[in-house]
Design a binder for these strands. Structure first.
Lengths: 230, 230
DNA sequence: CATATTGTGGTCATTACGACCAAAATAGTC
DNA sequence: GACTATTTTGGTCGTAATGACCACAATATG
C-alpha cells in the first residue's frame, strides 16, 4: 500500500441537485458559470470541500460541505430541506482543469420556501429550470441530474416521506397526489389515491387538522405530518 | 470559486465490501493490515485511486479503481461479480494519516467462485468472516460494512437479480430461497416462495433446464438465468 | 339556475401473499 | 422390503392492496 503523502490527489467537490415543484412542474436550480471552464453555461450549484481548518484542522465532512454550499447558494437551512448523498462521480476527464471527484447530493425544497431562494441568490446567476426543458449543462452535470431524477422516482415509490418535502406543511390529499403525478409522470385515480393516503393517517404518520381549503371544487380536508420522536 | 490548483486536496480511496455465502452464512472478505495505522487489525480490501497515468494521463475512474482493487486482492474479474458503488465516506478524522475520502463499493461473489479467491490472495492476510462474528475493524470500516448490509437487504427486496449472484449458475428453487433466508434473517414457506419464483419463469427471466438435482428429499428441478440481450 | 370542478365514499374484480394441507419422490435406517 | 425423515411440488383459503369504475357532496363560475 502506498504511503499517503506520496500519492497525487484529486480535488474533491460536492454538487447539489436542488429540486422543487413550481407551476405544477418539477424544477431544478442552476447557476450560470462566470468563469472558465464552461463560462456562461449553466451548472449545478456546488463547490470544493474544505480540507483544512475547522475543528481538528482537517476541514469539513462531505455532508457538512453539502450543507454549507446549499446555504451559501440558496440561503436555505438543512433542517428545512431533504438532503441526501446520491453518488460519487469520478471520471478522469469530467473536469478539464484536472482530476476532480464530485460527490453529488439531492436537496428537495418545499414550495413554501423556494421564494426565499430567489431572494438569497444573485438573480442574474441563479434560475429555476423545468427538468425537461434544460439548457446545455457544464461538466457531466446532465448525467448527475439524470441520476438524481431516477433516484427521486425510485425513492418516492418506496418512501412517501420525500413527497412531504414538496408540499406545503398544511396539505390536502390532492396536493400530495399532484406531487406523485408530476414526479412520476403518471395520473392516479383520485379516490384510489385517497384510500392509500388514509392508511398513513391510520398508521399515525399524518393527522387531520381543523379547517378546510378551497380547491375550485368541494373544499378539501387539511392534514399535516405528525412530528416524529425519532 | 477557488482556482483548482490552489486547493488542498484529500486523498481518495476505494474500499470494497466483498460478500459471499459460505456454509449457509453471509460472509465478508477482510484483509489483515500489515502497516500502521491499525497494523494487525482487519480491514476491507481497498486502496487509493490512481490519479496519474493511464489514457489521458489522468488516472482511472472510480469504477475502474474498484475493479482493479478487486482483481488485485481477490483474483476475480468483474464480469463474474455484482459490483456497484455504495456511498462516499468522508469524515475528516476517519484516517489518522490525514484527510482521506473513501468511495465504498459492494461486490457480491458467487459461491462458484469464492474458492478461487482463497487461492489468489495471500492466505495469511485475507480471510472470510461471518458478518455477525466480526473482529474489530480498522478505520470506519465497521460503519461501511453496516451500510453495505443494509443496502444489500434493501436491494434484494426490490431486485432479485443480486440473489442470483449468490447461487450457482444452475440452481434450484431451494437454493434461491436459502439465499433470501440467510440475507434477510427470516424464513419463507417453501410453497409460497416457490409460487413467487415461478412468476419469474413466466416473465421469461428464468428458464428450466433438463435434469434434476439431489437434495436429500425429493429431487428438485434445475433452472438458470436466461441470458439477457440488454 | 345550470354546469364544471374537485373532494369524498363506496362497490367490484384482480392480484399478491401468508398460513396451511397433502401428495410425490428421494435418502437413510431398521 | 418397510418405515421414517426430508424436500419438492401442487393445491386451497383468507386477507390486504390496488385499479377501474360509479355516485354523491360541496364548492366556484357563468
Amino acid at each position: 500500500m502506498p504511503r499517503i503523502y506520496d500519492h497525487p490527489r484529486p480535488a474533491i467537490a460536492v454538487d447539489i441537485v436542488v429540486l422543487t415543484i413550481r407551476h405544477e412542474r418539477l424544477q431544478v436550480l442552476l447557476i450560470e458559470r462566470a468563469l472558465e471552464p464552461f463560462a456562461g453555461q449553466w451548472a449545478l450549484p456546488g463547490g470544493f470541500v474544505k480540507v483544512e481548518g475547522g475543528r481538528g484542522g482537517r476541514g469539513e465532512s462531505l455532508d457538512a460541505a453539502a450543507r454549507r454550499e446549499l446555504r451559501e447558494e440558496t440561503g436555505l437551512d438543512v433542517d428545512e430541506v431533504w438532503l441526501e448523498q446520491l453518488h460519487a462521480f469520478g471520471a478522469p476527464s469530467r473536469d478539464p482543469r484536472g482530476r476532480v471527484v464530485s460527490i453529488a447530493y439531492l436537496a428537495v425544497v418545499s414550495p413554501d420556501l423556494f421564494s426565499r431562494v430567489q431572494a438569497a441568490t444573485d438573480a442574474a446567476a441563479a434560475r429555476w429550470f423545468t427538468v425537461d426543458e434544460l439548457p446545455r449543462l457544464a461538466f457531466d452535470h446532465a448525467e448527475i441530474l439524470g441520476f438524481a431524477l431516477d433516484h427521486l422516482r425510485a425513492r418516492l415509490s418506496q418512501d412517501p416521506r420525500v413527497a412531504f418535502h414538496l408540499v406545503p406543511r398544511e396539505l390536502t390529499i390532492g396536493d400530495l397526489r399532484r406531487v406523485y403525478e408530476i414526479i412520476e409522470g403518471t395520473t392516479y385515480d383520485k379516490a384510489n389515491f385517497r384510500r392509500r393516503f388514509l392508511r398513513l393517517v391510520d398508521e399515525g404518520k399524518i393527522e387531520p387538522i381543523d379547517g378546510q381549503q378551497s380547491t375550485g371544487g368541494r373544499p378539501a380536508a387539511v392534514y399535516r405530518l405528525v412530528e416524529r420522536a425519532d
